[in-house]
Design a protein around this nucleic acid. Structure first.
Lengths: 199, 199
DNA sequence: AAATATATATACCGAATGGTATTTTATCAG
DNA sequence: CTGATAAAATACCATTCGGTATATATATTT
């Protein structure tokens, strides 16, 4: 086993905790003291494990996306379900995560895009990377759908993909302000009427 | 005229400037020193004119909404144009304000909702008030439209109104991340396909 | 010109910030 | 038991924060 004094807190668990704090309170709104209290790790321990505050924020956002974003995008990319089914599942999963009782703080990526836009180019950059990844998967899936005849050839598949990708931005803001489940559900129902069926 | 030493800076102009700084950098991201530099007013002058930082932020957000939000909602409420025309105009005006070169910082209300959600209940409250006002006007306009036969009786007018009101949230996030004019335009085109015509 | 009123400029305050150096404690290897 | 190692705990640092007290400058009023 290790040679020195044993860890009081598992770093992976500390990162999960830090993620929720940053997610909820933002970068500027979170102090290192907040993180010390929440994680149980002492301040020098945090710096030794994760680097400075910005590095810890980046790792938190990456953890968030690995947990929630990547599985969502994998399903969107690889599921053989019909397009309306898979798009609905995507939006409903996003909406469901907005109601997560353990951290009802909207979408961490959206929060990062908003807060990092002006002052923290590094944070904006990583947020935009994840935002772009989502958009790319939507674009690819909708282009395939048009080739497969799931949507009519005369519609602009790229615009349609961008539209549905952007709906998760609206859901993110709504989730942050406490919109309830029924309203989120209605929102998704209306959004899906913009998806043209091929018949 | 006034009795003492004349003002170096017009408070109204200072408020306009402070609004743009808060809009761009957020509440936590803006220091009083930033505001001193931007407005040209000395720090005690800012406190004498506007109160503390939170009061100045509130006045800035109010100024923003009076300038941009209120005229938009007035048009939505009172215009006799057909519903698709007036909804399109609403969204296009929002999109246009996202491209404003003087302050391309998204929507100040959306930014406030995101940032204020966790730490600053007072800021969240005023943001939600404006958000609610927008939703109320949409609801009323769509309810009227359904009575007037502009939209079919069998659709859920309330859900439709909430959906279009929420599209400005998505536009706000897109505007903050630098989405270009063509993408915003395509987004609006797709969104409007969710508005059922009555024929 | 003297007194008054109002705004500016400067200096300052305690508290909190991000970050680090130092000391103490707990484990394992010999 | 002893010495080495690694983490924890504490104290500390310079800077910046929001906010204010004090002093100075510029105008009007009498």
């Amino acid at each position: 086993m290790g040679r020195g004094r044993p860890r009081k807190t598992d770093p992976e668990q500390a990162l999960d905790t830090a993620m929720k704090v940053f997610w909820n309170k933002g970068f500027e709104g979170t102090s290192m003291s907040d993180l010390v209290c929440a994680t149980g790790m002492a301040k020098p321990g945090l710096y030794a494990c994760f680097g400075d505050k910005e590095a810890l924020y980046k790792k938190s956002l990456t953890r968030y996306f690995d947990n929630l974003g990547t599985p969502l995008l994998d399903d969107l990319e690889h599921s053989t379900d019909p397009l309306p089914i898979v798009v609905r599942r995507f939006l409903e999963t996003v909406a469901h995560s907005m109601l997560d009782e353990s951290c009802p703080s909207g979408c961490f990526v959206v929060n990062s895009l908003i807060e990092g836009a002006s002052q923290h180019p590094a944070l904006k950059a990583i947020g935009k990377e994840y935002d772009q990844r989502r958009r790319d998967v939507f674009s690819q899936r909708f282009a395939d759908a048009q080739k497969n005849g799931e949507i009519p050839t005369q519609v602009n598949a790229q615009a349609l993909a961008d539209f549905f990708a952007a709906q998760s931005l609206a859901l993110g803001v709504m989730g942050r302000t406490g919109t309830n489940e029924k309203e989120l559900s209605n929102f998704i129902d209306v959004a899906l009427t913009a998806l043209p069926a091929n018949h």
